[in-house]
Simulated assay, not measured.
Amino acid sequence: MKMFKGFQLRQKIANIIIKDHVIRYVELKQTTPLILSRCEERYLPSGIIQEGKIVDRETLETILEECVSDWKLKNRRVRFIVPDPVVVIRTISLPKGLEEDEIRSYLFMELGTTIHLPFEEPVFDYTILERTNEKLVILLFAAPEHIVKSYSELLEDVKLRPIAADISPLCIYRLFHTADQTKKEEHLLLVQVDLSAINVSAFHQHRPVFMRQLLFEGKFEQWEKKVDAFGNIVLEWKGKEDEPLRQLEDVYKEIERVMSFYRFSIQQGNGQISRILLTGDHPYLPQIYATMRERFDIVEMLSENLIVSDNSKTIPPSYHLALGLALKEGTS
């Protein structure tokens, strides 16, 4: 006897983001159109994770166990993101004669010897940027193996089953691409402004070209949690009144520097940023968007019509990263 197809239950994959200040989780009902089944978040006390590195594992494990229990995720398959501060993206020229199936082995041999990274024993992936008779150029993504392993083992210890890791620029780009807000010929700058850092990454030909991160000095405990009219947790600043605005001024200057670097150093004057895509979980994101529109005039945010929620609840930009992770293919 065969079960009716409509009665088959398929366990969804959990998509978890763990940042210095928060744990977020989303689950999709379907991808076309994009319908969100569930989203949850749990803010972390200051100091448990610092610049992507787990400092107080015992407390973090306790909190994550509570999340797994409250969100009913036990034994679920899970995707997670490698923290931005530990990720390195490099453009590297390889011997032009290397075949496709030889590249990974070559990188295994040369990382740490002829190809230098700011850490030992990396985990890595790559994409081919250019292959001609004269040269072979790849984009290398790398992170310290022990840090990636610390997150994977943490997830396993709270009865989850990690099946895939990703990096935030690829997740954010994937989401904007789903919204039909990317074009292959354009030079796009993704700007992700979060509570503790800004991540800036450039894309061309649907590929990342480089990534840069700027950390903020502000302390998380100076933000007070409140619940808005939609039932979402929002943060209000309780420190020195001008401090977040001063930090944001640094953000705009950094974006200008990145755009100049991209135009003159990376593109050698032959290309420049044509559009800026803005997202993030910073409480001042609407003000940031307004200011950036005035300064750059090429800024846009994710289309509000892209995401539909099961309960018609408004989905804030703070969940965009997890949504982009949920759209990762090949692991469902």
Rank of each mutant, 00 (worst) to 15 (best):
I13P: 04
I23K: 07
Y43E: 02
Q50Y: 03
I54L: 08
D56P: 00
E61G: 11
I63T: 01
I63Y: 02
K74W: 05
R76C: 14
R77D: 14
F80G: 04
D84R: 12
S93L: 08
L98S: 07
R104M: 09
M109I: 12
G112R: 10
I115Q: 06
E120C: 05
Y126D: 10
E130F: 06
T132M: 10
E134C: 07
A142N: 12
A143N: 10
K149P: 06
E153L: 14
L154Q: 13
S168H: 09
S168D: 08
L175R: 05
T178Q: 14
T182C: 10
L189W: 04
L189C: 14
Q192S: 06
V193N: 10
S196V: 04
S196I: 10
S201C: 01
H206Y: 15
F216N: 05
W223I: 11
V227W: 10
V234S: 03
K238A: 13
K238W: 04
E249P: 01
K253G: 04
E254T: 11
V258S: 11
N270F: 08
Q272K: 13
Q272N: 04
I276F: 03
I276C: 04
H282N: 13
H282P: 06
Y284G: 03
L285I: 04
Q287K: 09
R293I: 07
S303P: 00
S303F: 01
N311P: 02
Y319V: 08
A322I: 10
G324L: 12
L325S: 13
